[in-house]
Design a protein around this nucleic acid. Structure first.
Length: 499
RNA sequence: GCCCCUGUAGCUCAACUGGCAGAGCAGCGGACUCUUAAUCCGAAGGUUCCAGGUUCGAUUCCUGGCGGGGGCACCA
C-alpha cells in the first residue's frame, strides 16, 4: 500500500483501497447482513468463557466423545474448512484457538449459510456444545452464532502469518492478530511490570507519579526532547529520568518510593534504544548501593521466575560483583586507575595490542566508558554487577567510602546490555553544587549531555536527605531478556518509526 | 550522520546472463457431513516502492529519492 514517493499510506490519508475487489466483497457481505436484519456491530456479548479456560477441562476426552456441555466463546474467525452441509472453523481469542463445527442439521439452512458467508477476520460470538472430533480435535458444535463485528479488510495470511517487519511494527494490530508469539510477548511484558510492582509494593515502597513535563531535565546524561507550554510561554522538557523528583520525595520523608513509567531521550534508535522507553526507579532511605544490588537481584529473579524463564541465563542471586577497574583490566590488560589522566590512559590504549580505540578528543572518563562499552559490555552473558565507577561520569553518586576518585555506583549488565544503574545517592548539598558546577563547565565546553544546574534540587538536599540507595532498572531490556527478543522493537507495542 | 543489505498480487514467496511477471494462501463462482496449511474444478487478481538513465527491450544494470533491516557512532 504505497503512494507517491514510495511513502506508506497511513490512516490520516484518504483510505483509497488498493484492493478494491477484496474490500468490495466484504462490504457487499456487510450490506447483506444489514438487509437480513442482522446488526453487524452489536454493542456487547456477555457471558463469554476464554478459550484457554475451556481447553484444559476436556483434555481427557476421547476422540468421538460427546459431553453435552455448553459454552459461549468469542473471538476472531481464523480459518474455515469445508463449505457444504458441514464445515469446521477456527476461532481465536487472546487465550487460544478452538475449532468450531457448523452443521446444517443443527443450525438450519439459513443460519448455516450466514455462518459460512462470514469472512476470515470477522469477530464472532458462538454458543455450542463441546465434543472431541473423530480425528481427536476438541471442537464446539455451534448451536448459535452471532456476528460481533464485521471485518472490512483482509487479515494476514492464515498460515504464514505476518513476517514483514515494517508492517509488523507499523500495524501492530495485524501482528497481534496473526502471530501468537507477538501476543505472548506483550502478555509477558505485562507480567514483568506486574512483578516489579508486586515486589516493590510488598517491600513497602510507595508508587508515585512525578512530572513528565519538566522545567529542567536531569538525573541522567542524555539529550532531552523540548516542548512548549503556550499559557506559560516557556519551554519544557520531557523527562530523561525521574531521579531528582524521587529524591525530593525521599527528602519529604516518604522513605521508600518508586516510579514506573516512560522516560524520553532524544538520541539514536537501535536494537536496544527507543526514544521513549520504560524505566522503574526506586529510592530507599537508610540504604546504600549494596542494598540496591540485593534488591535488583531479587526483583529480576522474581520476574524471571514469574515469567517461567527457561533460557540460558542464570538470574538467581547472588550475581557476580566485579569492580569496573578489574572488569576492564581482565578484558584489556589496562588498569584505568593506574592511568588516571587522559594522556596516560590514551598512551596505555595506544600501547595495547588488545585494544583498538580512537583516543583523540576523548576525555578520561569517556575513554573509560569506551573500554567498558567495547570490551566488557558485549562479552557479558549472565547478569553481573560492575561496581565503583569514576566520579567524573556520575554527578549524583556519593563518593566511595574507601576508594578516592570513585563513587559508590553499580551498573548491572546482562546478555551484552546494561539493564540497571544505581548509586549510594549523593546527599551532601555542597558536594552536589560542586558536581553541578563541573557539569556546567562541561556544558560550556559544548557537552550536550551535561546536567543543567538544578537549584531547587540542591535546596531540597539542604533540607537534609537521609542516606539513600537508588536504582534505575530498564523495563524494556528486562522484557527483552525474559522473552529472548533481540530487538527492543519486538517488545514495544508501537516503536518509533520514520514517517 | 556514515557503511552494507533490502523493497514483486491483500499475505508468504518465485522469476537463470537483461527477453511476454508466476505459485500457494486469502478473495470470487462451483462440489463436498470429521476437516485442521482440508481437498477438487473454474475464473479473476500487478504503476514489480518512486523519479530519471543505459538499452531494440529493465523486476533484473546505473544514478538519485523514499521506506525497512543490520552495522558504526551516540546512548540506557
Amino acid at each position: 500500500m504505497r503512494e507517491d514517493g514510495g511513502r506508506v499510506t497511513d490512516q490520516a490519508e484518504q483510505p483509497e483501497p488498493s484492493v478494491p475487489e477484496l474490500l468490495a466483497a466484504r462490504r457487499a457481505k456487510l450490506d447483506r447482513l444489514r438487509e437480513q436484519g442482522v446488526d453487524p456491530f452489536p454493542h456487547a456479548f456477555g457471558g463469554v468463557t476464554p478459550i484457554g479456560d475451556v481447553l484444559p477441562v476436556w483434555d481427557h476426552l476421547e476422540a468421538g466423545e460427546e459431553t453435552g456441555h455448553a459454552y459461549r466463546v468469542a473471538g476472531r474467525l481464523a480459518a474455515r474448512r469445508g463449505q457444504g452441509k458441514m464445515a469446521f472453523l477456527d476461532l481465536v481469542d487472546r487465550s487460544g484457538r478452538l475449532q468450531l463445527q457448523a452443521r446444517v442439521d443443527v443450525l438450519g439452512e439459513e443460519p448455516m449459510a450466514r455462518l459460512l458467508e462470514l469472512d476470515l477476520g470477522d469477530l464472532l460470538g458462538v454458543d455450542g456444545e463441546i465434543f472431541r472430533s473423530r480425528r481427536g480435535e476438541l471442537t464446539l458444535r455451534v448451536t448459535q452464532a452471532t456476528v460481533l463485528a464485521k471485518s472490512l479488510r483482509p487479515p494476514p495470511d492464515k498460515h504464514h502469518g505476518l513476517t514483514d517487519v515494517e508492517t509488523r511494527f507499523r500495524r501492530r494490530e495485524l501482528d497481534l492478530m496473526a502471530n501468537e508469539d507477538a501476543r505472548r510477548t506483550f502478555i509477558t511484558r505485562a507480567r514483568v511490570i506486574r512483578e516489579v510492582r508486586g515486589y516493590l509494593d510488598e517491600q513497602g515502597f510507595i508508587e508515585v507519579e512525578t512530572p513528565i513535563l519538566q522545567p529542567l531535565y536531569g538525573g541522567a546524561l542524555a539529550r532531552p526532547f523540548v516542548t512548549h507550554h503556550n499559557a506559560l510561554d516557556r519551554d519544557l522538557y520531557l523527562r530523561i529520568a525521574t531521579e531528582l523528583y524521587l529524591k525530593r520525595c525521599i527528602v519529604g520523608g516518604l522513605e521508600r518510593v518508586y516510579e514506573l513509567g516512560k522516560d524520553f531521550r532524544n538520541e539514536g534508535i537501535s536494537f536496544k534504544h527507543n526514544p521513549e522507553f520504560t524505566m522503574v526507579e526506586w529510592y530507599e532511605a537508610y540504604a546504600d548501593y549494596e542494598d540496591a544490588m540485593a534488591r535488583t537481584e531479587a526483583v529480576v529473579a522474581r520476574v524471571a521466575d514469574a515469567c517461567g524463564y527457561d533460557g540460558e541465563l542464570d538470574f538467581s542471586p547472588p550475581w557476580k560483583r566485579v569492580t569496573l577497574r578489574d572488569a576492564i583490566a581482565e578484558r584489556t590488560g589496562i588498569d584505568v586507575l593506574e592511568h588516571r589522566d587522559q594522556a596516560a590512559l590514551a598512551a596505555a590504549i595506544a600501547a595495547s595490542d588488545r585494544v583498538d580505540l580512537p583516543t583523540a578528543d576523548r576525555t578520561w572518563p569517556q575513554l573509560v566508558d569506551d573500554l567498558l562499552s567495547h570490551h566488557v559490555e558485549p562479552n557479558v552473558t549472565d547478569p553481573v554487577f560492575l561496581i565503583d565507577y569514576p566520579k567524573e561520569l556520575s554527578p549524583f553518586a556519593k563518593d566511595h567510602r574507601s576508594e578516592p576518585g570513585l563513587v559508590e555506583r553499580f551498573e548491572a549488565f546482562c546478555s551484552g546490555m546494561e539493564i540497571a544503574n544505581a548509586f549510594t545517592e549523593l546527599n551532601d548539598p555542597d558536594e552536589q553544587r560542586r558536581r553541578f558546577d563541573a557539569q556546567a563547565r562541561l556544558a560550556g565546553e559544548g557537552d550536550e549531555e551535561a546536567q543543567p544546574y538544578d537549584e531547587v534540587f540542591v535546596q531540597a538536599l539542604e533540607q537534609g536527605m537521609p542516606p539513600t540507595g537508588g536504582v534505575g532498572l530498564g523495563i524494556d531490556r528486562l522484557v527483552m531478556l525474559m522473552t529472548g527478543k533481540r530487538s527492543i522493537r519486538e517488545i514495544v507495542l508501537f516503536p518509533a518509526m520514520r514517517d
